Amino acid sequence: MFPQLKHISNTKRSILIIGIVVLLAITFETFQQLYYIRRYELGDGITFFALLKTQAYRWIIWLMLSFILIGYIRTRVSRKKTTQSILKLIGLIISLVILNIFIIALSSALFSNHTFSITDLLSEYIPFFTYQKAPIYTLGYIAISMILYLYFENEKLQIEVQELSELKSTNSKLYKQLSAQVDEKSTILNIKIGNKRKIIPVAHISWIEADDYCVKVHTTNSKTYTMRSSLKALEEKLSANFLRVHRKAIVNMDLAKELHLANASNVILHDDTKIPVSKSNLKTVKDFLDQY
């Protein structure tokens, strides 16, 4: 909506927003008072700008006292929120509102056309401004408290995110250094059987057979387990001695004893299991065996 605000820091943006809100509040209250004065004929010759001047200095006093609230919230934002801390904040807001009303009542009494009187101050000015200003001043301080709390919490979170980002970067470098030295291939397969998990050492797997959307894991003890996975996914996880010999089979070549090339090619395992080798994978199998 306001792309130019993106280039302003969060602090300046917050100050700008508060300033705009205060300006709108002053303008609204000025129009409101002007309406009542003209509607009920409470005075003659009173202009919008004359009222605006009066409202402005009162809101400036309110804004200046709000810095006490800003300082208080800044020092408390990192602490644990308790009932006592909330009551202290409410007490501070009430105190600031009372101080506001006293200051503007005193200034109005001093600069009025009448002789200053303590009696008038207590019986007329303070009750009048309490009725007129206390609700809106209180709401204003509550709004500022909420905005400031969210702002300082966001500021704290940004610092933590930055620290985590730096930690992540450091850990990423360490991971890359370690991964160059450590074999990432799986040493076990974790297979779900009912409500249990079966842990099978990779060294005990003789071959793996594709079965629709699952695979059958054949082990050296002649047991077979069904696993929800694909051959491609397992091929990437298993060590180099597991070769894809067919589109439907992966073989643990450490357990292979023969390769038959007559007619249809087959790998023969130690338990005499025959596993077909496809033409496209035959060269890979030969190259593997040629290493030994």
Score class of each variant (00 low, 15 high):
Arg197Trp: 04
Gln32Thr: 03
Tyr40Trp: 10
Phe102Met: 08
Val161Ser: 08
Ala50Met: 13
Asn281Ala: 09
Phe242Gly: 10
Val202Met: 03
Leu231His: 12
Ser280Glu: 10
Leu69His: 12
Ile8Gln: 03
Leu89Phe: 04
Asp287His: 08
Val202Lys: 00
Asn113Val: 03
Ser186Phe: 04
Ile17Tyr: 13
Asp211Trp: 04
Thr220Asn: 09
Ile98Gly: 06
Tyr141His: 11
His218Asn: 15
Ser265Arg: 01
Leu164Val: 03
Glu235Ser: 15
Pro276Cys: 00
Phe2Gln: 02
Thr284Met: 02
Glu160Asn: 07
Thr27Ile: 12
Ile159Phe: 04
Leu157Val: 01
Ala105Glu: 03
Phe67Tyr: 14
Ile86Phe: 14
Leu255Arg: 12
Leu69Ser: 06
Leu164Ala: 05
Ala180Tyr: 01
Ser186Glu: 13
Ile46Leu: 11
Gln177Trp: 05
Leu282Ser: 06
Lys216Ile: 12
Thr220Gln: 08
Ser85Val: 09
Thr119Asn: 06
Trp207His: 15
Leu289Trp: 04
Met253Ile: 08
Ser239His: 07
Glu184Asn: 03
Ile70Gly: 08
Arg39Thr: 04
Thr82Asp: 09
Ala262Lys: 13
Arg197His: 11
Gln132Phe: 10
Val22Leu: 14
Ile205Val: 11
Tyr125Thr: 00
Asn195Ile: 01
Asn100Met: 05
Val215Met: 04
Asn252Pro: 10
Lys232Thr: 15
Ile37Pro: 03
Arg39Pro: 00
Asp287Glu: 15
Leu231Thr: 08
Lys6Leu: 08
Leu139His: 00
Leu99Glu: 05
